[in-house]
Write a protein that binds this DNA or RNA. Sequence first.
DNA 1: AAAAAACGCTACACAATGTATAGTGTAGAT
DNA 2: ATCTACACTATACATTGTGTAGCGTTTTTT
Lengths: 112, 112
Amino acid sequence: MYSVDTMTTAQTLIGCVDSATEVLGDKWTPQLLRFFINEKTVRFCQLQDLTEGINPRTLSARLTHLEEQGIIVKSATSSSRCEYSLTDKGYDLLPVLQNMQAWSDKYAPAAV
Amino acid sequence: MYSVDTMTTAQTLIGCVDSATEVLGDKWTPQLLRFFINEKTVRFCQLQDLTEGINPRTLSARLTHLEEQGIIVKSATSSSRCEYSLTDKGYDLLPVLQNMQAWSDKYAPAAV
DNA sequence: AAAAAACGCTACACAATGTATAGTGTAGAT
DNA sequence: ATCTACACTATACATTGTGTAGCGTTTTTT
């Protein structure tokens, strides 16, 4: 039988990872956030074009979720158009994404 | 109209993030990998107990996927029992998880 | 000024993915 | 010899994501 004691530390840490995975674990979200490394603001149609394959409904859901989490903000550029940009909280996620990229570059340089 | 030129760099980078998100984007996977920070080897039932709520079928699928990706290896501890441990590739993912945790600690200290 | 295209979505039916619960064969523990 | 744990698999269901179409508004083009 294994020792449960040795695992308690790990167990208490789990909740913390959850809060990041609740964001990055959603399909498409890391890809979406990556655009902000090069762009200060992005628009719905840009994300749609660049993240080829994403369903507008899914994109809409992701943006709503990110906004609710305080990671991005939506601002109107005209009466019917808008743009999205990172908050400080969202900006602080970029290093994580860059880490993920570094790992990917090291182990899957040719991508798949 | 927006400039597509300014986005091409971001676009070419996407494939790279994909390879990490193909792993970390799966539900439960970050939580599962986190146990390896404290433990060199884990067993199926441990992961099941510690990741409360995970379905054994899902856990099975995750472990298979992680093994296929060369992130963990499965080794027999007896004729019918086994344990899982990280490969070098998997070990290199831990900093990413720690980054995620640092972000989570900063912005969601009370968890949710 | 009129027509066309783009924008930012929403709607619908369907496909894929994850879950609750139960169960299975084998093997260690008592 | 019996009991329990282990490492899963099975089934039916719930949730999530997708392809395609479309809608009202606004901008651009002609």
